[in-house]
Design a protein around this nucleic acid. Sequence first.
DNA 1: TCCTTATATCGATGAATGTCAATCTACGTA
DNA 2: TACGTAGATTGACATTCATCGATATAAGGA
Lengths: 116, 116
Amino acid sequence: MTATSLPSSTDESGCCPTTSPQAMGEAEALQAAQILKAVADPNRLRLLSIVKNGPSDGTCVCDLTGPLQLGQPTVSHHLKILVDSGLLAREKRGTWAYYTLVPHALQKAAELITEL
Amino acid sequence: MTATSLPSSTDESGCCPTTSPQAMGEAEALQAAQILKAVADPNRLRLLSIVKNGPSDGTCVCDLTGPLQLGQPTVSHHLKILVDSGLLAREKRGTWAYYTLVPHALQKAAELITEL
DNA sequence: TCCTTATATCGATGAATGTCAATCTACGTA
DNA sequence: TACGTAGATTGACATTCATCGATATAAGGA
């Protein structure tokens, strides 16, 4: 994420003016895509929705496996992706694991789209 | 894949209350994920960025193949995905094709994340 | 200590996806 | 009409990803 400015090939063919100077760089795009990929899955969207609309002290995994009709390992896998991308936080209380939304993470993810 | 409302298993184990009632449904999640998938790719993010910061009357393909260091068929393929998902509009003028942002499409895509 | 329950991890598999080379279509021009 | 160029389409290939069964870990209870 250092020099994001591109060479801006001055096309001689006469079709196009020049590459716009403030276009998103390669590294920046890669990082943004990684977070957006975490959200761009129907089952993970539903997981986020359930957690968001659930109790503020967290939603446990047993409340997530039922609605999605997926196996427990699969749900755990999706939850890991959401935690690794900074969207969900995991807290273990006793035998159970509770997931909560990371405060402004969804807002920040949305801004990756609006602030191109 | 017919009845999207699930039995909402009233778990007897004492761990969890019940499935939250206003969670996103299966069909809704699938549709949202389809649009978000279109955005969740580094090269497509850069395409959107270039078009957004480009001239208001559209950016032609020859201005898009250069910065991305991808072959012309690959760029065309990504552009098709963005058009099919309603984010970009294509207009052919003469030999060239010009792409523009569909007015509030990016905003709407972002709201798919914030309004879960 | 043994057993049960909740969750995570591992390995395999089939499907979806990004990329390219080759080809096709449409338009402009000599 | 023939040629050159811009862009889209097709088919193939490699990679990534979602899912599952089996297993591991960890905590609580008998």
